[in-house]
Amino acid sequence: MLRVDSLDVAYGEIRALKGVGLEVGRGEIVTILGNNGAGKTTTLKTISGLLRPLRGTITLEADPLVGVPPHEIVRRGVAHVPEGRRIFNRLTVRENLMMGAYRRTDGGIAADLERVFTLFPRLKERRTQVAGTLSGGEQQMLAIARALMANPRLLLLDEPSMGLAPVLVEQIFHAIADINGQGMTILLVEQNAAMALSIAHRGYVLETGSVALAGTAAELSGNADVRRAYLGE
């Protein structure tokens, strides 16, 4: 579904990605692991159009994405849950969700609203509440739900576990696995490698802007370097 080839991205003089390539097949959860500053967020931002690569190609079902503005990429079926959630604090929960569906003209918005409320019943209880007053876990749920409202083909998730208590991390990952179970293709960036590998089919390890390792979740979980560097052994 998504194919990224020899991607180079820089912030001014700082080279953040050097020749990154990866692939995500339909229906898969693919995870990108890596330490702070490895370039995970940069990769997602480039896919969703927030950053322009110096070099390289990105295609969504053979459709080139490089140079397409972010608001247009959303319309083509890529929804990005950014690092730090970035929900609209001054909007209500419901308004946030409606913003997720901003570009849609099909009749499925009401049904999708029900769908995300079923996935995250807490959001339904709080739909008239201003989003800035939600707890951290609820904000993460809202960020994911808001992306789902775009009815995407591909969901990009940037560190959904960030800053959450372990029990909430469990809950969020459960929801992600659920969403995937309903057919959604997911590219998941995580520092919590154990959690990510527990639900992913495949994964890539980024090190200082390059792919250092790639394989199935089982292969990566069994790899000695991965175990040492990312699984704390």
């Binding site: 972010p70 608001h71 950014p82 970035r86 997720g100 808001r146």
Partner: peptide, 11 residues
């Protein structure tokens, strides 16, 4: 509130 996040909504 947040231009980048808004653009990710398709705005």
């Amino acid at each position: 509130e947040d231009q980048a996040a808004a653009s990710l909504m398709g705005i």
